[in-house]
Amino acid sequence: MPSRDDDTSETDEFDDVTEAEIRAAFDEQSYVADDEIVTTVLLALRLGRPLLIEGEPGAGKTELAKVLAGGFDAELVRLQCYEGLAAENALYEWNYTKQLLAVQAGEGGVAEGATSDTDDESVFSEPFLLERPLLQALRGEGRRVLLVDEVDRADEAFEALLLEVLSDFQVSVPELGTIAASTPPVVVVTSNRTRPLSDALKRRCLYLHVTPPSFEKEREILARKVPELHDAVAAELCGIVRRLREEPLRKPPGAAETIDWARAVATLRENGSEGTLSHAEVRRTLGAVLKEVEDVERVDDDLLDSLVEAARAAREAAES
């Protein structure tokens, strides 16, 4: 298998995919993507290169991988990164309990069939192997999307492991030999930019930086994701979120928070009411969009007035 560093080989499963198909997949999954995202995803699929997506939390990075998997009937294999993530959690490990039982059974002669499995080699064979996400993605059949989520949370040592996998789409298990992907999975790597990633990783990836959606795009997202909410109310919510993003918050709301908030408001309203958002309604549901106590406390009466004012302006703009 050729090295991916110089990249050459294409992901067979996607080498004929078109922009129209990608747009259709996104539409089907109610994912609102601008042209840049569509083009970059097209390149990732056609060139067979991993896609590194960076951006603020809640900007839709993880969702993009899910949508890709859903839209193309691909299996989604997710590896959530965290500090201390090691190879045995990401790649494979041996089922020690099963190995121990097999060895004991062989020694005691309890299970006749197990006897042949009790020598040193046999307990390090397929039946005792526990596949973790990276290995699952390599060995799977058909279309697969490997989501390496929040890679910046993992240590740099894990990045090195990831590089090895992404370079050749193969791993070496000493007891079994080299395991290579018959068809490489589509790889989506996300990062919240809490630390810089290595140049080596960036070199292997196409890069996409996603920013919080514009007002219009956010309205479109709500229209698709929360259709039960009246459009005018959705516009008010988007106006408030846009205003909130101007504040120096600890965690500015992303698209995910806007959707959560819209669902909360829609749930509390009856029969898809189109009435304007009140101060009390905004205050009562603010916890759905602001996830830090300092941010919630920051919304005093003055700021609340300002938010409601922004909501009115957004409604007027939407209705005009």
Partner: peptide
């Protein structure tokens, strides 16, 4: 190199698509 391959995929007739393709390959920091 990657940008060249990307341009081959998206073609040379649409500036916006070419911009997205080259940005995906040449820019690695926002």
């Amino acid at each position: 190199t990657t940008a060249a391959r990307s341009l081959v995929v998206v073609g040379f007739s649409d500036e916006d698509r070419a911009r997205a393709a080259t940005r995906a390959t040449l820019v690695t920091d926002p």
